[in-house]
Design a protein around this nucleic acid. Structure first.
Lengths: 337, 337
DNA sequence: ATGAAAGCGCTAACAA
DNA sequence: TTGTTAGCGCTTTCAT
């Protein structure tokens, strides 16, 4: 009576075949007669045998596991991307190991243990920073960036077309009749914030409108930073007629602060965000926003990863996905400005 | 010139020692003279050697990886629990593999591959359903339930004290002066919803108030279901003066629907939720709620897991965490009822 | 303090 | 079609 779990050899012994034949059966390889297969399968059932994932990884030289490093796991955007990625990976028989790394140090350790120790077959990095963090990634290790595209052209990436999204959002505000459009950005160290700022500027310039510094605020993606922006604006006395917030959460803070000022959205100030998180249509008023399909971004990132891992031809290194304008009640066409 | 990565033996050869000595060095084991250690470390650096996680798992018989199965990865509550769990696991040198399983079938497959194949050392299940899903979990496989506690007493669990939370929320509403308190539940197939309903009933009964069926609605945790409840209530003509929503998202839907009816919160209808999600304080009006510390729940689940894995004495099998009342502007003391 | 030998459970290459 | 032989890269046990 062995106490530990049965191995491929135990099954082989019971079935009266070699362990290799058992291996063929569990891997559904050709070259086994139906009769032999049946005998082996019966033995597997009888022993309640399950192959060892570790031993397989060992012998195959691959883990069939991908890792995803994200600034955190709770932001709706990140979580949605991860969910999309995980689901796509699973559908291909791969697992996803997700970790959060807030600072460069923990990021480095993570990379070391995940990629360096070959705990996973590939690495997806959400919201990568373009700094020295990547020095520990082994050369030629499968790597895909998500949410910002790499300045190092050789690194694959999937992201929203941030410049375009911001351009569209701002243009829409302009088309509504606004002349004084302010912007609330994410942290400017993130490429995503910079690209969205660029789109905003472009839209303004194309309409021969100036980019006024007093109307550009740097936030940190939180609702609180949106609230602070409005308070600062109120304090300055100079109010815009519309605000482009680079994400919905900050837009929510803006909505709240405008309410606190007894001003009306969209009559006094129009607001548009980016993301279309599930709660956005429940904001007061329901928020106009640029909807992005985050699960799709995760899915595409994993597809790209498989292209790299399986050494298929790799047509595009950089994929940029579009966003869609969703008009709700936080914006409206105005002729009175 | 070998093209593949260096092994422990390559290091040993370069350092002029046995591979065992190298093993001792990388594991920081005792029994190596400082001089030998230095030589080995130099060799490791020179070859840019990194130990193989798979080979270690193979030899040790453990993966140092935990898995977390959740209905999804995007719900703020789940994501927060996972984040807390992942962070605690990492701090102990473990990794966390998180997967979502919406239906019993995919849940079963996941369990089979994660636990059956020993891809991980332990399994954390968020919002477990008490059905036949667990038949595939190997006997004695380390298992911790989160968010609902197991009716099978032998399975460890960490959860919010749901009965108490609901009791407290309802009692608070009662203490505010309300007599007609309605409730919006999660899906009644979830233990969590049932327990919270129980707490609601208990509070009512202790105050000699009847539990009226027309005031209890079953939702599905989404804001939309909150909205529907109010619409149904409005249609019926019989309005409560306060609503206990079993989570904040549904409360948000309630807030929105009440607004659409041109009624005021908290004057016409008071609302309290559960969770205290980050956006709750930005709702209109800011939402009173029962705050739960979700990262802590995840953290405690992992701690419990380590107690099981490391076969320490296991003082408590079931941990119930408290929630804290947070009063904002969606409720207020009323004497006029 | 160090080294040699055995084995973890599988897959892959080759033989029969 | 099936079996045999080698590893995969470590850790563990036992010698020295």
């Amino acid at each position: 009576m062995k106490s530990s779990r049965p191995t491929i050899r135990d099954v082989a012994r019971l079935a009266g075949v070699s362990h290799q034949t058992v291996s063929r059966v569990i891997n559904k390889n050709a070259g086994v007669t139906p009769e032999t297969r049946e005998i082996v399968e019966a033995a597997i059932l009888e022993l309640n045998y399950h192959p060892s994932a570790i031993a397989r990884s060992m012998a195959r030289g691959e883990t069939r596991t991908l890792a995803c490093i994200s600034p955190n796991l709770t932001d709706y955007t990140f979580a949605s991307i991860i969910e999309g990625a995980e689901s796509e990976a699973r559908s291909q028989g791969y697992f996803m190991l997700s970790s959060s790394a807030a600072d460069p140090k923990s990021f480095g350790e993570l990379v070391e243990e995940l990629a360096g120790h070959r705990r996973v077959d590939g690495l997806i990095v959400i919201n990568p920073y373009m700094d020295e963090r990547y020095t520990h990634i082994p050369k030629n290790f499968p790597l895909v960036f998500v949410g910002a595209y790499s300045h190092d052209e050789k690194i694959c990436s999937v992201s929203l077309d941030d410049v375009q999204v911001a351009y569209d959002a701002t243009s829409y505000l302009l088309a509504c009749g606004h002349k004084k459009v302010a912007m609330l950005t994410g942290p400017m160290e993130e490429d995503c914030s910079r690209d969205r700022s660029e789109g905003y500027r472009r839209a303004l310039q194309e309409n021969s409108l100036p980019v006024v510094d007093a109307f550009v605020f740097e936030g940190d993606w939180t609702a609180t930073s949106g609230q602070k922006m409005i308070q600062a604006l109120a304090h300055s006395g100079e109010m815009p007629s519309a605000i482009f917030a680079q994400n919905d959460r900050m837009a929510m803070g803006v909505l709240r602060a405008v309410r606190d000022l007894n001003l009306n959205v969209p009559d006094d100030i129009a607001v548009i965000g980016v993301d279309d998180m599930p709660l956005s249509s429940y904001f007061d008023p329901p928020l106009s926003t640029m909807r992005q399909d985050m699960p799709l971004i995760g899915q595409e990132a994993v597809r790209m990863m498989f292209n790299i891992i399986k050494k298929k031809k790799q047509p595009e290194r950089h994929l940029k996905l579009p966003a869609e304008l969703v008009v709700r009640q936080s914006t409206k066409v105005t002729d009175t400005l």
